[in-house]
């Protein structure tokens, strides 16, 4: 009786698990089926390395958006890494436990704020500030980077905290016993030992930054020009899809799916690197 019940539950759970997997497979096949033909038709080089995005004339080149995504993501990770790693180091090495129990949940709370809210705050406060003090239209690489940098903080911080906490206590104790100060211990021992975990945190944060859409549409300006500086407006791959998908039909729609294919490949590569790095850490630990 009991065994058969276990078995039934096992089957049900298996089915549930596979339905999640199959939705991933479905999404993948679908965007590739919709997107790849138009890339081949346009020519891979023309699609990836041309800056002519004129859907009305059947010209689809996404160079400006690839560069745009790259700039915005790098900017976001610059901010996200400095603050995220900084936070993680303070929380794990220098902070009284009481304070940690306040700061850490507060940072994790950032992840729960909807991206539209980040976008609105960006539009109302950040954009006018940049326009008035740095010039340009305000909607810019900088605005998008700052907003995204804050949005990736919870990802970067919480994964780095885990990585730093996973460093064996003996390493720290050994280092301090040898006469190193607390900072020397952190810098030379703990960070080195946790390096692969920190890299994984960085890359997962990057994946989040590449994929974010709503907040970016609101603060980036969405021009089709390749951005030339921090105050230039910019369009990212995700905003291109979200801006135009509502209306698009025919080849235009396919080209947006093709944009999705490029995005998919970028994020897959990032995630694979993150996985590989964190696995190599596990292997290193065993050695």
């Amino acid at each position: 009786m009991k065994i058969s019940q276990d078995r039934v539950i096992g089957w049900v759970l298996l089915a549930v698990a596979f339905s999640a997997l199959s939705s991933l497979a479905l999404i993948t096949t679908f965007i590739f089926k919709e997107g790849v033909p138009i890339i081949l038709k346009q020519g891979v080089g023309n699609f990836l390395f041309s800056n002519d995005w004129y859907p009305g004339e059947g010209k689809f080149g996404i160079l400006a958006m690839i560069v745009g995504s790259l700039f915005v993501t790098l900017g976001a990770m610059f901010i996200g890494a400095i603050f995220g790693f900084g936070c993680a180091i303070v929380l794990t090495q220098f902070c009284p436990r009481r304070l940690v129990s306040i700061i850490k949940p507060a940072i994790e709370l950032l992840a729960g704020i909807p991206s539209v809210v980040y976008g609105s705050i960006g539009v109302v406060i950040l954009v006018p500030f940049i326009r008035d003090y740095l010039g340009g239209p305000g909607l810019s690489v900088l605005a998008a980077s700052i907003v995204l940098g804050i949005m990736v903080l919870p990802t970067v911080t919480s994964i780095s905290v885990d990585a730093l906490q996973a460093v064996p206590r003996a390493y720290r104790e050994g280092s301090i016993a040898l006469g190193a100060t607390q900072w020397q211990t952190t810098w030379m021992v703990v960070l080195k030992a946790a390096r692969s975990g920190l890299v994984a945190a960085f890359i997962l944060g990057m994946g989040r930054a590449v994929g974010e859409t709503m907040a970016v549409i609101m603060v980036a300006g969405n021009t089709l020009e390749i951005p030339l500086g921090l105050t230039s407006p910019v369009r990212t791959l995700t905003s291109n899809i979200a801006l135009e998908m509502g209306y698009a039909s025919g080849a235009h729609r396919q080209a947006l799916f093709a944009t999705g294919v490029v995005l998919f490949v970028i994020i897959m590569v990032l995630n694979t690197i993150a996985l590989a790095v964190s696995h190599s850490k596990a292997a290193g630990g065993r050695r």
């Binding site: 800056n51 004129y54 859907p55 009305g56 400006a64 239209p137 909607l139 300006g221 969405n222 021009t223 089709l224 020009e225 407006p233 369009r235 801006l243 135009e244 509502g246 209306y247 698009a248 235009h252």
Partner: peptide, 26 residues
Amino acid sequence: EEGSGTREEFIKRVMGKVRVSRGALV
């Protein structure tokens, strides 16, 4: 954005065959 009815009316009545600059904010 591309495909908006307001944009299409604007293109039809003002721009004609001339392209909107790539530098225009969207």
